[in-house]
Amino acid sequence: MPFGITMGDASGVGPEILLRAYHANLLANDVFAYGDAAILAAGAKLLELDISLNVIQQPSELIPGTLNVVDLDCLTSEDLTPGKVNRKAGAAARNYVLRATADALAGKIRAIVTLPMNKEATRLSDPTFCGHTELIAAACDTDNFTLMLATPEVVCTHVSTHVSMEESIARCKTDRVLNVITLTHDTLQRFIPNPRIAVCGLNAHAGENGLFGMQDLEEIKPAVDQARINGIDAEGPLPGDTTFYLAVHQDRYDGIVCQYHDQGHAPMKLLAFESGVNVTAGLPIIRTSVDHGTAFDIAWQGKAFTDGLTHAIDYARKLASD
């Protein structure tokens, strides 16, 4: 079964990266796109890339040696407006994702790999739109999901992300921590039989037995204990400043559960600023994504990195391995 890439907002770097990755022979024959053929054709011309497009209706119709596109037919070549917030492009990007998610749920593709949407553009036609991942989760009829940052060596998840430090301390609660441990474990279990999960403490030195804060003992430890009762190889709370070192340099853990945004994002960026992949944990389908946005400022200029897409495809392949 093939892997589907959604090309993302036409004004951003998504379709450009798709075309350039294909042209550089970075896409295998079982990888195809969801998008607009008119944009890809006009974009290839703009980038002066010689690309043979093949428009298909179903993933089963792939022809090797071409860039296969399930053409949602939302846009024309006129709609290729690099770097501009475009209502039609925003709405189209939403359609690619919904179609790909439906195909994944129907078992027609093994995974979806998404290129960036532009929140502002999509909101022009869908004011309720609050995020790419939320859109996919809603289409999958779930609200229990979490972002997982992945590198080949280690993955990390967060008990809270885009909230103030004060709020993230308030969100460090046993049930939340246990839920994130479970989501992390279940996702890794797709390709690791018994993943080793490290759970970071909230405070310095993981609280030093209550000396530097009580959440580590009162909220995090009970979650780790319960996860172990549930059969998960979880360990913690561990000092946040040594956990990544142990995972990466001593291969001690497969996954790390962090308590707040920077506890995970900072080390992950130091480890893999350009090779990081985003995975949505908790969905009934496999979804990976590049670790960047639409980058309107450099879109369609031939500058955007294509590596993120190949890493995201590689990771989807790993998650889909039988």
Partner: peptide
């Protein structure tokens, strides 16, 4: 800091700096 744009970082809390420099 790693790439040499600054000589010194000032962190607000313990793990903020320690996570990075231990990894480095």
């Amino acid at each position: 800091v790693r790439d040499g744009h600054y000589d010194c970082a000032l962190s607000m809390y313990h793990d903020q700096g320690q996570i990075a420099i231990k990894l480095l």
